[in-house]
Each structure stands twice: as structure tokens, then as C-alpha cells.
Amino acid sequence: MRYPVTPDGRYFVVRGRLWRMSDPTLPAERRAELTKRLMAARRAVGTALRAGDEAALRSARAGVDEAKVALGERGPVWWTDGTPDLNRRMAAKTAYAEWFAGL
């Protein structure tokens, strides 16, 4: 992977920030389908931005959010041990700080 992944596989790190990984229990076919929907929605965001179409932009952004929630990257966490979600937090200010400093 291009970005480091936390030892527990819950997050990857970009510029020091944690981003939640997709749910690893998703079947490969379902993950591929959702990823395809996510990429289409992201392209629609770009198209709407270039066109200045606010309604299309809202719809496209909703599509991105829907796909990310279905992938487990947003919304309820996919793990069951009660550990809180640290999505979008700086790794150096979390329980992953020591691991991150060692990269």
C-alpha cells in the first residue's frame, strides 16, 4: 500500500492524519461494486464543480458519502471491541503516536 496502515488495520495515514480503512469483512465483489460507485460519485463531484451546478454537486457529494458509509470508511465503525473512532485525527495525538513516530 502507498500509505502506512496502522498495526490493527483500522486506519491508513496521509500527511500524519488517520483515515479509516474499508471494512475488511466485505466480500471482494461487494467492495469492488462500492468502490466503483465511489469513483463514479467522485467524478460526478468534479463534473458538477466545473459546471457550477449546485444541485448536481449536492447529489454527487451525497453519493460519495453513501458509498463511503457502505464501505465502512464513514458512519458506524466496523470493529466490535468498543474502541472509539479516530478517523481524521492526527496520528501523533492518538494511541498510535508511538507507532507513527517509529515510521
Rank of each mutant, 00 (worst) to 15 (best):
W99H: 08
K93P: 00
L34K: 00
M21G: 01
L71E: 06
R10H: 13
R30D: 14
P7T: 09
P76T: 13
P76V: 11
A91M: 04
E66N: 11
A28E: 15
R88S: 10
R20D: 11
R43I: 08
D53C: 07
T94I: 07
P84W: 05
P24Q: 09
T80H: 13
R58V: 08
D8L: 07
T80R: 15
T35N: 14
W19N: 15
T47E: 15
D53P: 04
L18T: 02
L57G: 05
P76I: 02
M90C: 01
A56G: 13
L26R: 02
R74P: 00
T25Q: 08
L103E: 08
A67L: 09
A51N: 11
A62E: 14
T94C: 06
A28M: 11
V5D: 02
P27Y: 02
P76N: 03
F100A: 12
P7M: 10
E73P: 00
R88Q: 15
A101G: 00
A91V: 09
A101S: 13
D8C: 05
R37D: 13
T94E: 04
L57T: 02
A32R: 13
E29G: 02
S59K: 14
A40C: 01
K68P: 00
R37M: 10
W79C: 08
R37A: 14
A48T: 05
W78Q: 02
L34T: 02
N87F: 01
R37I: 00
A32W: 07
A92S: 13
L18F: 04
A28V: 13
A51R: 11
F100L: 06
A70Q: 13
L18A: 05
R58T: 03
P24L: 06
G52W: 08
T83Q: 12
V77D: 02
S22Y: 05
T83D: 09
W19S: 08
M21L: 13
K36H: 14
R42Q: 14
L34E: 05
E29A: 14
E98M: 10
V13P: 00
S22E: 14
S22C: 09
E66Y: 05
A48W: 10
R61Q: 15
E98A: 15
K93E: 12
A60F: 10
A62F: 09
D23C: 05
L26V: 06
K68L: 15
A97S: 12
K36P: 00
L57Y: 11
D85S: 07
M39A: 12
G9L: 12
Y11A: 03
L103V: 12
P27V: 09
D65S: 11
V14P: 00
Y3E: 13
R50G: 12
Y11S: 03
G16C: 06
M21H: 06
T25I: 01
T80D: 14
P4I: 10
T94N: 04
D85C: 10
T80M: 09
A70M: 01
R74H: 05
M1D: 11
E98G: 04
D8Y: 10
R15N: 14
E29K: 05
T47A: 15
E29I: 03
V69K: 09
V45F: 03
G75W: 03
L38K: 04
D85V: 04
A67G: 08
S59E: 15
V77E: 09
L18R: 00
G82F: 09
A67V: 03
L71N: 06
Y3G: 00
R74G: 01
